[in-house]
């Protein structure tokens, strides 16, 4: 298993939408390299014939009747918004300029 590099951390931070500072990148790269090496131990035991387990409960398709029930009002839902306009979340521009 290849070790995690500073560039890997920068790429993953971009995927995770966290703008890390140069210092943070340096520090995290060193720590994550160690951690990734250590968690890689899972490859020592997990054989091909072992089924993966994603959850403790064997649940599939838990459903409920599709009935109208009381829900939050628009005001309640927007109460924690950094910015709201006309009963909507107001967000910074989502398209490139021009």
């Amino acid at each position: 298993m290849s070790a995690i590099t500073r560039d890997d951390v920068a790429h993953v931070a971009m995927l995770a939408r966290i703008s890390l500072s140069e210092d943070e990148l340096d520090r995290l790269a060193g720590q994550l390299d160690q951690i990734v090496d250590w968690v890689g131990q899972v490859n020592q035991v997990a054989a091909a014939d072992v089924p993966p387990m994603s959850h403790p409960l064997p649940l599939t398709n838990v459903t409920r009747p599709d009935e109208v029930r009381p829900a939050l009002t628009a005001e309640q839902a927007l109460a924690g918004a950094p910015e709201a306009e006309q009963q909507r979340f107001a967000v910074p521009r989502i398209l490139d300029e021009d």
């Binding site: 993953v12 995770a16 995290l28 490859n43 997990a46 054989a47």
Partner: peptide, 27 residues
């Protein structure tokens, strides 16, 4: 941040089977 980066890495293309997939088997 450390855990988000680690998790994103473990789930990213090319690493998923070796890390998250194997961890689920250990589970």
């Amino acid at each position: 941040k450390r855990r988000i980066i680690l998790g994103t890495y473990a789930l990213s293309a090319g690493y998923y089977e070796a890390y998250y997939g194997q961890a689920q088997k250990v589970r």
